[in-house]
């Protein structure tokens, strides 16, 4: 594991909350729009506590066996193979289920005994009951803004977590983050941030999703390494946000007004 702690710029008191939750052995739920730093936050905290991090990207075909583990067939015998969740419970550390809302609801039920004060993981196929060590922590995240018309989290699952809401950072913080991530200079970063903030106001009316900090960092990196600013914004900001030609046109006008041409 890399000893260097990944860069993370706290926005509010989320670092404190996380530390308290960790020391009290409480599971944490993080919600926020895409690209606002959820995943980075977790890897930062894991590095800070110096514990391993197991990430599982959830999808709608994820079964409970994919999390817990299954029997495999070897040379004339079957043997048990731990899933990522079980591995994490055995070894300690943070088990991070990214976009947990994507997983089917019956799948997430296996988290229930782990996420209350029992802190156990029963493996009914092997008959084991694993007790989570003190440094085990369950973290799940999801993006509440997605238009999944028919998906949502079971209230009984939601109510087992300490919940932290993430949002895009303020302009000053975002400038700091972007200049740190892309080592671009102040003026460029300032323009990119003001551009990003302009695009965010279009959410829910013209755009489905707000421009993420991640996209802004991409743009800053491209421009900083010498790519044409307007074209960089087109491919890193405008095109990822919309498929509609006219909307893209309008966004490009804003880009051009910001960067000249």
């Amino acid at each position: 594991m890399n000893n260097q702690i990944p860069y993370y710029q706290p926005q509010h008191n989320e670092v404190d909350i996380f530390e308290y939750a960790f020391s009290n052995q409480l599971p944490v739920l993080i919600k926020g729009p895409t690209g606002c730093g959820k995943t980075r936050f977790i890897s930062h905290m894991a590095a800070k506590f110096n514990i391993p991090l197991n990430t599982v990207a959830c999808h709608d075909d994820l079964t409970a066996a994919d999390l817990v583990g299954r029997h495999l067939i070897g040379d004339g015998e079957t043997y048990w193979s731990d899933g990522p969740l079980t591995r994490s419970v055995r070894s300690g550390g943070i088990c991070y289920l990214d976009e947990v809302i994507e997983a089917r609801k019956d799948t997430t039920v296996v988290l229930h005994p782990l996420s209350d004060d029992r802190r156990i993981l029963p493996l009914d196929r092997t008959g084991e009951i694993l007790d989570a060590p003190d440094d085990f922590m369950l973290v799940v995240s999801y993006n509440p803004g997605y238009q999944n018309f028919l998906k949502g989290m079971k209230p009984s699952t939601r109510q087992r977590f300490i919940s932290i809401r993430f949002d895009f950072p303020t302009a000053e913080l975002e400038q700091q983050i972007i200049s740190n991530e892309s080592s671009a200079d102040g003026d460029l970063v300032k323009r990119i941030v003001s551009l990003g903030r302009a695009l965010r106001t279009l959410k829910d009316h013209d755009l489905e999703e707000a421009a993420s900090t991640r996209l802004l960092i991409y743009a800053a990196r491209l421009i900083h390494s010498g790519f044409d600013p307007v074209e960089a914004c087109r491919c890193s900001l405008v095109e990822p946000l919309t498929d509609d030609l006219e909307t893209a046109d309008a966004l490009m006008e804003i880009v051009r007004a910001t960067f000249g041409r």
């Binding site: 695009l199 106001t201 279009l202 013209d206 046109d249 309008a250 966004l251 006008e253």
Partner: peptide, 8 residues
């Protein structure tokens, strides 16, 4: 285009 810009 004008509408989107205006709102943005």
């Amino acid at each position: 285009v004008v509408g989107v810009m205006f709102r943005a």
